[in-house]
Design a protein around this nucleic acid. Structure first.
Lengths: 220, 220
DNA sequence: TATAAGTAAATTGTCGACAATTTGAGGTTT
DNA sequence: AAACCTCAAATTGTCGACAATTTACTTATA
């Protein structure tokens, strides 16, 4: 499930990862107060490491903090989710464009093979998409952009937040049907080194996801 | 010079702002080690405060930190600067598109008037651009997007880093000549509520800046 | 001499205690 | 009853000290 494995070396790292996991997966609900003393007793670490972990979560836009008052898990709104998808559209569109320029042939081939494998599952009736496969696809293209800052931005920031939104709004496992073909076309454009087309297709792909989510949200 | 004024309430805030200023403006040079004890004596605060400030700088991508070793100011490379401009192109392009959808008429008018004022200066021979005016222009469009996460991302993260690059690579006060016209056209597209054109023009505008910088870099 | 092992100094990571600020309850005044 | 103080409890912000780790120097050995 985790590609880019981050490894915890300090106690703060562990606390940060654990806290992020609990928030993203919904154990700690949206809007919840994060009490430093409470968490430090729960995790059996000092307040200082909890503080540092919370600071990092704030940097990820997962919690909001007010001076002298405290930190709360961000409250999720439909607008916030749509905003996030607009950002993803811009950044991942650019990633696809850059991947068409920079991604090594061998990586493109591996990505193509990955899709073929997934296609086998589709034929066998296993519903495309598992979320993991989708994540893997997007992540490989991001890495393929070879823009280090873009990679950091998307893997550290956006994805956890996006997953958090989906979990908390009850829309894990997005649309199953057409995404496979869209992925296919994107890879083809990258293989053809057609950056402009790759960007257009990726942006449209993300727009579809966004619309799909917007529809679900409007039924709530 | 500072639009979105952030106000420091805690001691950590002050230390963070001050440290960021010193780094961005080059008083603390690229690659410099940030010793916690040294800074805490220099600023006359505790190490905890300095630590928190450094953590925040890390979140802004202004310093890099290795566990049990310490934090250093990021070393600036030409590739890094170009990477940053690719990200700006994607995000600010999207911002322009959204501004065309969402920016209130009154704000568009104020932006247009701002450019007219600046045009007076150009006629009087005062070289367009001061950096401040350029920043103001871009910032207003970003805010006009009304995408809160995009606004946060660009104002907190990207801009300080971009300025830091320009200062340290000795390219403050970018190209003077054509930028005014480009700004004019972008505002016109926004006023016409033509998001697609606004995005294209903004992206091209940033590409020009990037190319301009790339040329300067190649002469070094 | 070059390499390796060992040790001391310096730096970061973690902790518990104290200071400053906010919050809420209770009482007072209009 | 509503608005406004007062004060205590709780929470966050800051601090100095100790623990763990890295770094650099010294010494030993091939």
């Amino acid at each position: 499930m985790s590609f880019f494995q981050e490894q915890a070396v300090t106690s703060s790292d562990k606390t940060f990862f654990r806290l992020r996991e609990e928030i993203v997966e919904g154990e700690i609900p949206a809007g919840a107060k994060l009490s430093e003393v409470e968490l430090s007793t729960k995790y059996e670490v000092s307040r200082a490491v909890v503080r540092e972990a919370i600071n990092r979560l704030e940097a990820c836009n997962i919690v909001e903090r007010k001076a002298n008052v405290g930190a709360r898990v961000v409250t999720l709104t439909a607008e916030g989710l749509l905003e996030l998808y607009q950002i993803r559209e811009a950044l991942e569109g650019m990633a696809a464009r850059l991947a068409a320029q920079n991604m090594p042939e061998i990586e493109i081939e591996k990505l193509s093979n990955l899709l073929d494998d997934q296609f086998e599952l589709v034929k066998q009736g296993q519903s495309y998409y598992q979320e993991a496969g989708d994540l893997d696809f997007h992540y490989r293209i991001i890495v393929g952009s070879q823009n280090q800052q873009l990679i950091t931005m998307l893997s550290n920031g956006i994805y956890h937040l996006a997953r958090m939104y989906r979990v908390q709004l009850g829309m894990t496992g997005p649309r199953v049907t057409t995404a496979y073909d869209e992925h296919k076309h994107i890879v083809k454009a990258i293989a053809n080194r057609d950056g402009e087309l790759a960007e257009i297709l990726m942006r449209r792909h993300i727009q579809y996801s966004k619309n799909n989510i917007a529809v679900k949200l409007s039924k709530m």
